[in-house]
Each structure stands twice: as structure tokens, then as C-alpha cells.
């Protein structure tokens, strides 16, 4: 069995050697996060997999984040980010890659499906839930939501009660969607320490 993972500081140096100023590395709680610009995203990901001293063979997870409601103050940065968790089996190391998506209105970023096959469904899910378009994915259909679903439910402006409710209409002999009658109620609001 392999030894435990090396110190994150050493790993940060390796990253600096490979990518220079194109990435910025943050270490917190013993985990490494690599921030990368959308223009360099695909290239950095490709090299993270292929360089022999990085060697991240597995894409463990990929997800979107909507930052529009983040923190106590108004968020001024880019709204959407794509976060991937990488795992190197041969080096026994993990890394988290965060890439902010350039456009808030029509968010779009290159697909990493050609680099890791496992990105296929993860990107479909992020598209479904956040509306982030992954260019070059090739099969970007909705994954988790219902057939004919409208909207992207994990965006912060999507109500938790949803927008429509389904019922069986005996007259028309089928299930119909109507605007929801459910009221959003919150027992304990989101709160920050004083």
C-alpha cells in the first residue's frame, strides 16, 4: 500500500513549477484548491492528468456553485463556478480545481469530458441544476430533473418550493403542471454570528 500523501506545501511548489502564474494555489484544512482562469481551464486540466509528477488519473466529482447569495455582503465577483475534485491514485493525492465561469447571463465553459470520461454525467448534472453550458460536451441533456422541466433548480434565485406542481387532470386524462400553491416558509432564517 502507498504511503500517506505528501505535504500540501510541496505540492503547491510542484504546481507553481508547471503552471507559474496561470494558477493560484490555496491550502486550507490540509486540502489544496487550485484556482484557474476559464481560458486556461482545459489546458491545465489536461496537464494535471498527463504530467508524470501530477498524474491525477481520476475525476472524482464535478459540481457547480452559484455564488450570488454568498456571505453577509453583496457578492461582486463572478456568479458561477465549477469545482472539480481530482484524485491521483498513483501519488495518493487530492486536489480541488475551481474555475469561475466568465458570463453570468450565459455561463459557458469548456467541457473536460475528453480528459476524463467520468465528467460526462457530472457536467450534465451541473448543466441541469445550474444552467452552465459545457462547450464540446457532445451530449449535454438534462439529467436529474423531470422531462420538460423549466429552470435550473440549484440557482439561488430558484425557490425551494419549486415553481410548478403536478396533478392528475381527469378531464384531460393526463398529468398537468400548474403554478404551485405551496408557500415558502422558513422557521429559522439564514443567520450569521454577531
Amino acid at each position: 500500500m502507498k504511503s500517506t500523501s505528501p505535504a500540501p506545501e510541496m505540492f503547491a511548489q510542484t504546481l507553481q513549477r508547471h503552471f507559474g502564474k496561470r494558477v493560484s494555489t490555496h491550502v486550507s484544512l490540509g486540502q489544496t484548491r487550485i484556482d484557474v482562469d476559464a481560458n486556461d481551464y482545459l489546458d491545465v486540466m489536461q496537464r494535471l492528468r498527463d504530467e508524470p509528477d501530477l498524474c491525477f488519473e481520476q475525476l472524482i466529482d464535478l459540481c457547480g456553485i452559484d455564488h450570488s447569495a454568498y456571505g453577509k455582503t453583496l457578492w461582486t465577483g463572478r456568479r458561477f463556478a465549477v469545482v472539480s475534485q481530482l484524485l491521483s491514485i498513483s501519488k495518493n493525492r487530492r486536489a480541488r480545481i475551481r474555475c469561475f465561469v466568465p458570463d453570468d447571463i450565459f455561463p459557458s465553459i469548456p467541457s473536460i469530458r475528453p480528459v476524463w470520461n467520468s465528467a460526462d454525467w457530472f457536467e450534465r448534472e451541473a448543466f441541469d441544476l445550474f444552467g452552465i453550458v459545457f462547450t464540446g460536451h457532445g451530449n449535454l441533456r438534462r439529467l436529474l430533473t423531470d422531462y420538460g422541466f423549466d429552470g435550473h433548480p440549484l440557482r439561488k434565485d430558484f425557490p425551494v418550493s419549486g415553481k410548478v406542481e403536478a396533478r392528475y387532470d381527469a378531464g384531460r386524462g393526463r398529468v398537468v403542471n400548474e403554478p404551485t400553491t405551496a408557500k415558502a416558509r422558513e422557521i429559522m432564517p439564514r443567520r450569521f454570528p454577531e
Binding site: 472524482i60 459540481c63 454568498y70 456571505g71 453577509k72 469545482v83 475534485q85 439564514r190 450569521f192 454570528p193
Partner: peptide
């Protein structure tokens, strides 16, 4: 099985993947 948690300091998660 992994849990990715983002907290912005509040009493609820900001994002839970």
C-alpha cells in the same frame, strides 16, 4: 462517498455537494 461543503459562516450550508 464524498461530501463537499461550502460554508459562508452562516448557520446553514451555502452549498452541499
Amino acid at each position: 462517498f464524498g461530501v463537499y461543503v461550502v460554508s459562508d459562516g452562516a448557520n446553514k450550508p451555502y452549498r452541499l455537494k
